[in-house]
Simulated scan of single mutants.
Amino acid sequence: MKSYPPGMTNTTENALFDYSPITERPAISWPGGARVAVYVGLNIEHFLIDRPSTSIWPGTADLVPDALNHGWRDYGVRVGIWRTIESLDRHGIRPSVLLNSDVADRYPQIVKAGLDRDWAWLAHGRTNSILHTGMERDEERRVLTEIVDTITAATGRRPHGWMGPGLTETFNTPELLAELGLSYVLDWTNDDQPYRLNVPGMISVPYSVELNDLNLFGKGTTGPEFVQIVKDQYEQLSADSAHSGRVMALALHPFVTGQAFRAKYLDQALEYLAGRPDAWVTTSDEIAEHYVRTSAETR
């Protein structure tokens, strides 16, 4: 097993985790005999008006201001999130919220809605207009501390998980997060099960860039196709879990699935997942905690 050296900035060797085929691991058992642990990763983000960011039309992405793309993104926090909340509430689903720390000051009504519903809160950088990269160790420690402290103050709860803006990290990020008391990351989307990192106290929990509304609808997926994709993903993971549990993450962005013409399809997908008798519909926090507490794998 490789050790994870402090300050990997000057190496291209990935010592963060070891290769581990899913067929050669101790079995994972979820509560109640569930086969698949399901969570909704709800991205609640703030975008800067003077920086190129996630765009629906690249032709204007470098303009300042970029009214077309900024307005599209801003729809999520003004309108789309409230449709998404109605659907989550209807099916009794607590999302795992990937929260930019700038959201706490900009959109306190959304944070209050989450507090009223006992959402799980993860740190998701400061803003999704700036990727979490290119920092020296001490600078990154300062930035991460500010992000985590801001979210803690706004929610009354210290986050346990991290996903970087655009799923970005430095080689030092997991170790610095562990220093701050976090216990898992979502950035490494390479598995259907949690696994331990070579950083004491840190694990990876599955997330998805494939089962992700931003990616799917950005490639022309229709609403009915989205619902079928959710069903296909669940059915295969349930079949795979005959001998060991799996994780299914559904990644949502309110400016995408919160659009009016997609709302009923999100609702159908959530209704399907909430109705699976062999699903543990939960949060990424609870998946991480259960895995660490019960996993026979030691490192």
Rank of each mutant, 00 (worst) to 15 (best):
M1H: 13
P5F: 12
N14G: 03
A15M: 13
A15F: 11
A15E: 09
L16F: 07
F17A: 13
D18V: 02
I22R: 12
T23N: 09
R25Q: 14
A27W: 01
A27P: 09
S29D: 12
G32V: 08
V36A: 07
V40G: 03
G41W: 00
N43I: 06
E45F: 02
L48R: 15
I49C: 00
R51T: 07
I56E: 06
W57S: 13
D62K: 14
V64T: 14
V64M: 06
P65A: 11
P65Q: 10
N69D: 02
N69R: 04
W72K: 11
G76P: 10
R78H: 10
G80M: 03
G80F: 00
R83E: 10
R83S: 12
E86K: 15
R90K: 15
G92A: 11
G92H: 07
P95I: 10
L98S: 13
L99S: 03
N100R: 09
A104R: 06
Y107E: 14
Y107S: 11
Y107C: 12
Q109K: 14
K112A: 15
G114R: 02
G114F: 00
A123P: 01
H124Y: 03
G125W: 05
T127W: 08
T127N: 15
T127F: 09
L131K: 11
L131E: 09
H132I: 01
T133L: 13
G134S: 13
R137Y: 01
E139Q: 14
V143R: 09
T152M: 03
T155L: 03
P159M: 10
H160L: 15
M163D: 00
P165H: 07
P165Y: 03
E169T: 15
F171S: 15
P174T: 03
A178M: 01
A178R: 04
L180P: 02
L182A: 01
L182R: 00
N190C: 13
Q193F: 01
P194L: 08
Y195Q: 10
R196P: 00
L197Y: 02
P200L: 06
N212C: 15
D213A: 05
G220E: 08
T222E: 05
E225V: 12
E225S: 13
F226I: 07
F226K: 04
I229C: 04
Q233W: 14
E235N: 08
S238T: 08
H243I: 06
L250E: 04
A251L: 10
A251N: 12
L252W: 05
H253T: 12
P254W: 06
V256Y: 08
R262D: 04
R262N: 09
R262Y: 11
Y265S: 07
L266M: 14
D267Y: 02
Y272S: 07
A274E: 05
A274G: 05
R276I: 03
P277C: 05
P277M: 07
A279G: 07
W280H: 04
T283I: 12
H290Y: 07
T294Q: 13
S295G: 06
S295W: 06
